[in-house]
């Protein structure tokens, strides 16, 4: 993860600087606002820690050059740049995007460095020795083979409430998100409605068939649920801007995340859900904007 953060962060900042120079815009002041570095870091957090070095490079380049600067730069991008970069990588390089380390069996710093930059592990170890499917991926696969969730919960995939290992990562993202709410960096509407949408639809289906549909807690504390709710969906540029629109925007992301996780072709649906709701944000804003007193209906 550390290498992904470094590579994606540096690539994003360099790409932003080059694009700003080509567009003849102020370089230093724009770079210092941190938006390019943040986009690179958010992308890196979504990537598998053992992905080769060129994965964060391509993702960052797409996020900054295509999804941000070609749309006009900060404030004008209709899609979340980090998620646009992530989805491009997921569709283009599905194999490299599955290199998640097994919980409790992460290779050391030196082995990870070798793997990231050379594509192989030291001492000729096979990749399968240190990687495994994420809990969300494995649960989908096992359910597809006819197994029941009751049996899977006894296995090593599940932790206390969510995916093994992932629940702790999600707890820390939740802690960071709550701190941002307390400091009024973000508003409550999008994260609360997103988590509520995800939990509500998961609860309904879990009550209907607990052997097929995972519990709301599993969905909330697995994958990128908390990262998405507090750090990605709250992007002030690509999200809805009206109070009521934000509630629908977050709720839509939550529901779509569950739908894609459960019935879609990819194990986690946060990135796709965010991009789909980015598409809907202008419409939500249009229909939920505050009316000026005396304004006629459309």
């Amino acid at each position: 993860m550390l290498f992904n953060l470094l590579i994606a962060g540096v690539t994003a900042v360099v790409a932003e600087a080059i694009m700003l120079m080509l567009r003849k815009r102020a370089v230093t002041a724009t770079l210092l606002d941190g938006s390019a570095l943040l986009a690179g870091c958010l992308l890196a957090l979504a990537l598998p820690p053992l992905a080769p070095w060129w994965i964060p490079v391509i993702g960052s380049l797409f996020a900054i050059v295509i999804a941000k600067q070609l749309y006009g730069g900060l404030g004008y991008n209709p899609f979340n740049p980090a998620m646009a970069g992530y989805v491009v990588l997921l569709i283009s390089f599905p194999l490299e995007m599955t290199l998640w380390p097994a919980a409790g069996n992460h290779p050391g710093l030196a082995a990870t460095f070798t793997l990231v930059f050379s594509g192989s592990l030291p001492n000729g170890l096979p990749l399968d020795a240190v990687t495994m499917a994420t809990p969300m991926d494995a649960v989908r696969m096992q359910l597809g083979l006819g197994e029941l969730l009751t049996g899977l919960k006894e296995g090593p995939l599940f932790g206390l409430v969510g995916g093994a290992g992932w629940e702790w990562v999600n707890l820390w993202f939740l802690a960071g998100g709550l701190w941002m709410l307390k400091m009024r960096v973000i508003q409550w509407r999008i994260p609360v409605s997103m988590l509520a949408g995800l939990a509500l639809v998961a609860l309904v289906f879990h009550l209907y068939d607990p052997d097929t549909y995972a519990s709301p807690l599993f969905h909330l504390f697995s994958g990128a649920a908390m990262l998405g709710a507090f750090f990605i969906a709250t992007d002030p540029v690509s999200a809805s801007t009206t109070p009521v629109g934000r509630l629908w925007y977050g709720f839509g992301i939550g529901v779509l995340t569950w739908v894609i996780r459960t019935w879609g072709g990819y194990p986690d649906g946060v990135a796709f859900a965010v991009l789909l709701m980015n598409l809907a944000a202008p419409t939500l804003d249009f229909y939920t904007r505050t009316r000026v007193f005396g304004q006629q209906d459309r």
């Binding site: 606002d33 943040l38 404030g75 960071g176 960096v185 750090f231 540029v237 944000a281 804003d285 249009f286």
Partner: peptide, 28 residues
């Protein structure tokens, strides 16, 4: 990470707020 997000949102808030909004108020 949270500090980076907080600083970025704080640094960019004014520039994002003053952008022209016509595209955001039209139905997609």
């Amino acid at each position: 990470g949270t500090s980076l997000v907080a600083l970025t949102y704080d640094n960019t808030r004014e520039r994002i707020a003053v952008r022209p909004q016509p595209e955001k108020t039209k139905p997609s």
